[in-house]
Simulated scan of single mutants.
Amino acid sequence: MLLWGPPSKFVSGSWDPKQENNEIRSIDDGRTADRLLNWINKQMGSSYGLDDEKYENEHLNTNISDPGQIARAVYDVEEATFTSFDIILGQKMIKLETRASLTKFLQLLVVHHPSRRCRKGTAEILVDFDDLLANKKEVAGLSQKGVLGNYQICGKEIPRGYWMFCRGSKNETRGFSCGLWVLLHSLSVRVDDGESHMAFTAVCDFIHSFFICEECRQHFYDMCSSVSTPFKKSREFVLWLWNAHNKVNERLMKEEASLGTGDPKFPKVIWPPKQLCPSCYRSQNSKDNHIDWDHDEVFKFLNNYYGKMLISLYKDKEHLRDGQTGGVVVEDLAVSTNAVVVPVGAALAIAVASCAFGALACYWRQQQKSRKPRRSWN
């Protein structure tokens, strides 16, 4: 028997076919693949076909000039956030020498993550994080999935188990690495000038401490180490990360060409391509492909692309389609505004003091601990 319904309704593990208004229904016409797909298309108002190949992403390669595609990446940012946390716990990577790096990155997420539910989930971890790491004996236990594994960093809907914007044409391409890059870019465009260098060090320390690929980790660390002067403007951090990403792409383009490991439908390119941002290009040498960038235009593009546009398709809708998100309220995808849900007094203090994200997160945690009973977000 095949059943149809929102993913969240299957969690309980029970189904009563006699219950009225049941959101889980039996699929009564699925004897062949064609009939099953026709039934699904009727429910979703879609037109999928059995010959479709990676339907969700196949148009990205041929229509790269469509900036609206990035709006779907907000779900991949959530998936990448969960996956990062899951890897850290699964690989037992929380140690005395790495916990400060994790704390700084969580503080960055709790204020500037583009998904509200990830900001809430991260904040819940931060509220108890210092207590959980109160003594050295507990650190080893925390690197298991036991204690911290009970926290839902992006809410109970995550993980979904699939990628949307970041889905590759092969299982081993794109996915997590793509989602992580989108997360980092989305963080960079949301920090204020006074936070820019702290955000830079938080990202660098996080990658250096927790990214599994040793070669990738060292390469990123070398790029971080090349920065000799602290960033004073968010623009500097945004453009540094953009340039670092392009350096990684250049290296991988050569590697994938020699080893044949790239994604044929999503080859590595220098970002952004001219189709997506023609004003970003002053000139391009046809012989060596050297690009003379207009950095003001690049900065403007990155701010719009990874900022407003990341969640723009869903701003005016009350709910997202069940087939895409399980009926998640759009507010959970609202753009970050340098503030989290805090008591009025804390919000006022934050506004007056214009705290950087580290101080803000720390202050917020203290306020939350003093509230009884502490509110649950799930």
Rank of each mutant, 00 (worst) to 15 (best):
C118Y: 08
I87L: 14
L142M: 10
L108G: 10
D128T: 10
I94S: 12
R99M: 13
D128P: 04
H113V: 02
V139S: 03
R167H: 04
G121V: 00
D131G: 15
L96N: 05
K156G: 09
E79P: 02
D131I: 11
I125D: 01
K145Q: 14
R190I: 11
V111D: 01
T122C: 13
G161S: 11
T98F: 12
V189C: 07
R117K: 11
V77L: 07
M93E: 13
L142N: 09
H113K: 02
L148E: 07
L180F: 11
Q107F: 00
H185T: 13
V77E: 01
K104H: 08
S169L: 00
H185S: 06
R174L: 15
N150S: 13
R116T: 08
K136T: 14
R167E: 15
I153D: 06
D76T: 07
E157C: 04
K120Y: 07
S143N: 15
K95M: 05
L133E: 07
L89P: 02
S101Q: 11
L109R: 11
E79Y: 08
T81Q: 06
L133K: 06
V111P: 05
N171H: 06
M93W: 04
R116M: 11
G121D: 05
S101I: 00
T122Y: 02
G141R: 11
S101G: 10
G168Y: 07
A100C: 01
P114D: 04
